[in-house]
Design a protein around this nucleic acid. Structure first.
Length: 216
DNA sequence: AACTCGGGGCA
DNA sequence: TGCCCAGAGTT
């Protein structure tokens, strides 16, 4: 598929540097930050974790907190009741079963409370340098609009993107597609006029005949 | 497949 | 002000 290569080329040229926006000093901090980042901005997460990691540094520190205590400290990130419970459970598992170290294995990570496919892949990539390609809602939306994947699940899109993107560049592409999805290829009212790959967009073609659908 | 969680971001 | 999320879990 030559057009896919062309899309990759154009996006790479248009968005040369795409770096992670979450702040972290070690795999554990990253894991907590990514759990907190669900349905929340990285800016808000950074603000929250900066204060949080000042006082609580290890899985053992978090495992000792009550849900109410932690919930109060992570309120700014939303979904605090779920997240605080997940984080405490996860920290207990990490300290009891993994000797206080974040596992670097996908299945072990995904089995942790509050950790799904996307979170596990972000941790593997950013903390352990593994060639995963995390698919969040932005990556999913962009990949489908551009016809980079015909899959209708994040997992299928992930597989197609992994086949398409070089091992050493998957982390970069995760952030590049997120950046593109937030700034240009937005869920609502995308800025198609300033899109460098609009000629390849399946959504624009479809919209000529059908009604606009947000995520397609 | 649909629903819940929730403060922040944005029209 | 109201609507929608830089997901994951439960039913």
């Amino acid at each position: 598929m030559i057009y896919k290569k062309k899309i990759i080329e154009l996006l790479a040229e248009h968005i040369p540097n795409a770096e992670p926006t979450l702040h972290f000093k070690n795999p554990f901090e990253l894991l907590i930050a990514v759990i907190l980042s669900a349905q929340c901005t990285d800016k808000q997460v950074n603000k929250t974790t900066e204060a949080l990691f000042e006082k609580y540094k290890t899985p053992q520190d978090f495992a000792a907190l009550s849900q109410e205590e932690l919930a109060e400290k992570i309120k700014g990130c939303g979904l605090y009741r779920n997240k605080s419970l997940h984080i405490i459970k996860t920290c207990k598992i990490i300290s009891e079963r993994y000797g206080g170290r974040v596992p670097n294995d996908f299945l072990a990570l995904q089995a942790l409370p509050g950790v799904g496919r996307k979170t596990a892949n972000v941790v593997l990539n950013l903390a352990f340098g593994k060639p995963t390609l995390p698919v969040d809602t932005h990556v999913y939306r962009v990949a489908r609009r551009l016809g980079l994947s015909a899959g209708n699940t994040p997992r299928m899109v992930e597989k197609d993107l992994i086949d398409l993107i070089d091992v050493t560049e998957r982390g970069v592409w995760h952030h590049r597609l997120i950046h593109f999805g937030r700034s240009v290829c937005t869920a609502r009212n995308p800025k198609c006029a300033e899109c460098v790959v609009q000629q390849y967009c399946q959504r624009l073609k479809k919209n000529a005949q059908t009604q606009i659908r947000r995520h397609d």
